[in-house]
């Protein structure tokens, strides 16, 4: 299943819906990186709220994605990790320490806005 990507101002939103197979992650990564560079996006929000499992492969895919997007000059926020999924992840040993995680789209956007604001004011 293809992951839809929406453009909202300087940001992109990717909503991962239901079940996703490994190949979809690779597609998503390629597409996101291309879109970030084409639109000169400042940030990407990846919504995983409809995923009921996040194993080490999915987590690694998300992290790789974030790192590649970072190289394009944009920030990535992952939003919507469910309580039970979060608990399974930490028990498994997946902490996503170097990735920003937020509750939902709203928090994701307000984080990105604040973060951009800081970047600009400090420059």
């Amino acid at each position: 299943m293809q992951v839809p990507i929406m453009k909202q101002g300087p940001y992109l939103i990717a909503t991962i819906q239901g079940e996703i197979v490994d190949e979809d992650f690779i597609h998503l990564r390629t597409k996101l990186v291309r879109m970030v560079s084409k639109n000169r996006s400042r940030g990407v929000v990846i919504d995983v709220s409809s995923l009921d499992t996040l194993d080490s492969f999915a987590t690694r895919s998300l992290r790789d994605m974030a790192k590649m997007i970072e190289l394009q000059g944009a920030e990535t926020v992952i939003v919507g990790i469910q309580p039970d999924v979060a608990l399974a992840m930490v028990r498994l040993g997946l902490f996503l320490k170097d990735i920003i995680t937020m509750m939902d789209l709203e928090d994701g956007f307000s984080y990105l806005k604040k973060s951009q604001g800081k970047r600009i004011s400090h420059d």
Binding site: D52, T53, L54, D55, S56, P83, D84, L87, A88, L92
Partner: peptide
């Protein structure tokens, strides 16, 4: 998940089982 739900596992337990299965089948 289907079987776990039938058996009365909690939501959390179902997620833990599904995650372990995901890891090992991969």
């Amino acid at each position: 998940r289907t079987m776990a739900a039938e058996m009365g596992f909690s939501n959390l337990e179902m997620t833990l089982i599904a995650t372990a299965i995901s890891e090992l089948t991969r």
